[in-house]
């Protein structure tokens, strides 16, 4: 067990510090940078009365440190403001959209690993061949393509032109009524399986495939690239070369001795690409009308719904920090080479 208790405690403290820092930055951006924050918080069509109320709610008549105190108290008590687009509190809105986004991201990461890692291995084994070059081109495209454009174009091709996959939403509303599907966890793939509702499951699967593949493109290329580089390195190491020299079957050497050294760092780097992926989800969800946090944030941005935007930013920053910490700790547990 390479992870000491002290390390986890230390990471938890630094996590709290970073989250605190992120809230301070959000406070500065939203309350100090704008010349009249109350105008942003009341929305573009606010009446004088509403603006005056926004001033009161934000405590703008108090000194700045008192404002910060109120701000932190509101955050901790879950009072994240009211979205003027949906007219409902921001935090519950975000939380109710969370499962949809998590489901999309998890499926995307599964696709990324299931395709990216084998591709990387193949590229490493067939180094310098046509396959390797083609894969290199594909991975460069993956790192360079604007995700919103990929989403638009794939939606155009597969939904509008070929008509093979649905273009929007998580599930067919009609099917929901017909089969009596109802969400329990909010993860539709799991919910439909629990209820033994196979038509709903297939339908949810058909809806998730296209957005998940688009979202997985970047992490897939990232993992393929990393797997290739690490695999080439590992194949040159003494323990692998001597295992081959001893005449062990190539398959066993590859999957038992070489791959073991590759998987952990690749998975860790995928975890760190989570931040990129969640912003990608903003755009993918917007294009595919996927009712997750990304769409909530994107709709708020497009309608200048300031409290909701700020809430999303803060929520994702906290979530992102949390994920990074967890990934680091898990990486340290599964990879004995990581020194803490």
């Amino acid at each position: 067990m390479p992870v000491s208790k002290e390390y986890i405690i230390k990471r938890t403290f630094s996590l709290i510090g970073v989250v605190f820092g992120a809230t301070i930055i959000t406070f500065i951006i939203t309350r100090v940078v704008p010349t009249r924050p109350e105008l942003l918080w009341a929305g573009p069509h606010a009446t004088l009365e509403q603006i005056e109320r926004a001033r009161e709610i934000l405590h703008l008549n108090d000194p700045i440190y008192v404002q910060l105190g109120y701000y932190l108290r509101d955050l901790l008590t879950g009072n994240w403001g009211v979205s003027w687009r949906t007219k409902s509190p921001v935090l519950p809105g975000i939380l109710s959209a969370l499962p949809a986004t998590l489901e999309l991201i998890i499926v995307a990461f599964i696709i990324a690993m299931a395709i990216g890692i084998p591709l990387g291995i193949v590229a490493a084994l067939k180094r310098g061949t046509v396959i390797d070059h083609v894969l290199r081109v594909v991975t460069v495209i993956g790192a360079s393509a604007p995700v919103f454009w990929l989403a638009l174009i794939s939606q155009l091709i597969f939904s509008s032109w070929l008509g093979v996959l649905p273009s929007a939403k998580r599930i067919n509303e009609l099917l929901v009524i017909e089969t009596g599907f109802h969400p329990i966890t909010g993860f539709y793939l799991i919910d439909s399986l629990i209820q033994g509702n196979i038509p709903a499951f297939t339908d949810a699967l058909r809806h998730i495939i296209l957005p998940a593949i688009v979202l997985s493109f970047y992490p897939m290329c990232l993992s393929a690239r990393m797997t290739r580089a690490l695999m080439i390195e590992v194949l040159n190491e003494w323990h692998v070369r001597s295992a081959l020299a001893w005449g062990l079957p190539k398959r066993i050497v590859l999957y038992k001795y070489a791959l073991k050294n590759v998987i952990a760092p690749v998975v860790a780097s995928l975890g760190l690409s989570f931040g990129y992926t969640i912003i990608g989800a903003f755009m993918v969800e917007l294009v595919f009308v996927w009712p997750g946090i990304g769409m909530y944030a994107a709709m708020s941005l497009l309608s200048f719904d300031y409290p909701a935007v700020v809430g999303c930013v803060l929520f994702i920053a906290i979530f992102y920090t949390l994920i990074n910490t967890v990934v680091d700790i898990i990486h340290a547990i599964i990879d004995p080479r990581v020194k803490l």
């Binding site: 989250v19 990129y276 912003i279 200048f304 300031y306 992102y320």
Partner: peptide, 22 residues
């Protein structure tokens, strides 16, 4: 430490918040 605070945001997220403000 101040630098690290900025790195706590996923890339683009902070830019989104700022752009929405400005």
């Amino acid at each position: 430490r101040i630098t690290d605070m900025f790195l706590a945001f996923p890339p683009l997220l902070l830019a989104i918040a700022l752009a929405a403000t400005l």
